[in-house]
Design a protein around this nucleic acid. Sequence first.
DNA 1: TTGCGAAATGACAACGTTGTCATTTCGTTA
DNA 2: TAACGAAATGACAACGTTGTCATTTCGCAA
Lengths: 336, 336
Amino acid sequence: MATMDKKNVSMNDVAVAAGVSLKTVSRVINEPDSVRESTRDRVHAAMEALGFRANFAARSLKLGRYGCIGVVLFHLSGGNVDMIDGIADAAEERGFALTMIKKRAGEKMTLAEAARRMSQLPVDGMIFNLRQMVDDFDTFEAPKDLKTVIITPMEHPTCSTVSDDQEDGARMACEYFLNRGHKNVYFVSGKKESLSSQCRMKGWRAALEARGIEPPEPLQGDWNADSGYAAGLVLAAKPDCTAVLAANDCMANGVMMALRDKGLSVPDDVSVIGFDDELYKTIPNSILTSVKFRHRELGIRALNEVVAGLEAPSSRSRTLVSGVLVERSSVKDLRA
Amino acid sequence: MATMDKKNVSMNDVAVAAGVSLKTVSRVINEPDSVRESTRDRVHAAMEALGFRANFAARSLKLGRYGCIGVVLFHLSGGNVDMIDGIADAAEERGFALTMIKKRAGEKMTLAEAARRMSQLPVDGMIFNLRQMVDDFDTFEAPKDLKTVIITPMEHPTCSTVSDDQEDGARMACEYFLNRGHKNVYFVSGKKESLSSQCRMKGWRAALEARGIEPPEPLQGDWNADSGYAAGLVLAAKPDCTAVLAANDCMANGVMMALRDKGLSVPDDVSVIGFDDELYKTIPNSILTSVKFRHRELGIRALNEVVAGLEAPSSRSRTLVSGVLVERSSVKDLRA
DNA sequence: TTGCGAAATGACAACGTTGTCATTTCGTTA
DNA sequence: TAACGAAATGACAACGTTGTCATTTCGCAA
């Protein structure tokens, strides 16, 4: 009540009100056990009465750290939500807040530019979430005093990186087909510029070649169901096509719809596997087997890596988070 | 090259290296025109050589502001991504960064608790993204010196609020049905605790009652397709059911699948409208008419409201962002 | 009561900026 | 050359904390 209209309440104001020194107020906040209980109560009462809140800037200036981790979003998409969720939870748990900036739509941001902007903000370390290639990826050097972790499937010469193991996920899916008697696997890709799509394609190709199979020409999609449908129409005309790996669930669904429209059954005539395991949210009784990545885990790992590296920003590591094959009934066992 | 290992480079270091006073360095940064070009170049060279970066804490301390807006996420879900995107873009445009904290999974966070945590961080104002009810909603009072905007469909006694106009969206959908000769509209809700679901239901009910129609018992869903499918099975058995409004597209899809499995055609036998307009991403050739909310716009408005209120934190406003009916072919015109 | 060590408290500098005001330098005119 | 006003630069305090070290107070034994 009767709060004064002074702009901001400082420790000094509290000190005066409580009849103690400024330093004692500081102690009540940072090392309460070192101050007598009666004094502590007086100070607390004064803080309450004046509505005191510690000044972040002054505190950080003195301490030389912020307790914040910077997050740069180069691209904001569905899959990222869970990742940010993981980052945020892990940060919370370790007592950090997040400072976020985002690439503007249309703008072309480099890593150097992002780092420059971030280093003007209150951050002790930073995470770049990179889903597409940037021009200066290989030449980029992080500020020496700011631990930098990049979420990307590519290895970086000097920065720590964290990624889903997308190649391995694609390999798992292919072997799942091959181990069930399929002789070949067709592939429907996502957008060309997407690193995820590129990695999934790479894993698919490698898995086939490892078994001495010549990978067929991949079909180009754009992540959406309609492009999957178009690919499905093409595949329906290929008599040797018994297995299709689509780079995400939406396109996998498009493929399945096209096959059905052409009178083919999934999985009796053609088997299908997707990525991301999210079709069940939209399709009742979904049968699609899918490779799921643990995006939350990815975020957690990235944050932990930053925090672990705060003391030694120049350390470097590479973390891969494996995916999981969620089995449903869209794949037929041809050996049966 | 030959960078010194001194912890951090300060303006003073730059000043010494350039042979000028500290204040001149400050001027080069903040009011470059007031310093002679030759001097400016010397200073810039020194900054470059030493790798100087302005200290955020010191600067904020002196200026008394941070240039950051706090964002509290009480719940992180798909729809939020676009909203965050809008907030981030608008912030960027106005020269603000975002400081983010998140409610921990399982934890029960109140507005007061969130405000307390935020006010310890570098923020000039804050946005609460609230999709469910919290205990202290009505009693909460924002810090007097920190502009606070709440994204929520409910009105708040003291804080500015921003929201999609969900009720109006539901009303639009209902009138779309009724204007085409439908005599009644069934409703499939989302999760009970969701404010969005509650608002959509409220709008549906109001729209029917406004025409003197007794709203039928709503069917309870949980946002996912399977619950929509279950609702669809129930509705398929009702001969008077010609129009169904589902609280999101996934459930609408479930409803449609169930109707088809029961031999009913959409839209010939039953018309359907959903919310969020996202089915086309997953279903090829989607026919679902849907009410779409402009989440990006919502985020932009929220951020602008905060920035506009920075000087007068106690001001209060209420912003509603209208939705749009995206017309496809899932509704039959019975008057034809 | 006195003296003592430990506990509690306080005075003051420092963190790296920017604002205020004083001082120096410059280009011009008398 | 001297004198002048404007432009450029500098010295110093201040922002609100925390660390260092000195001082006061306390509880207890002599």
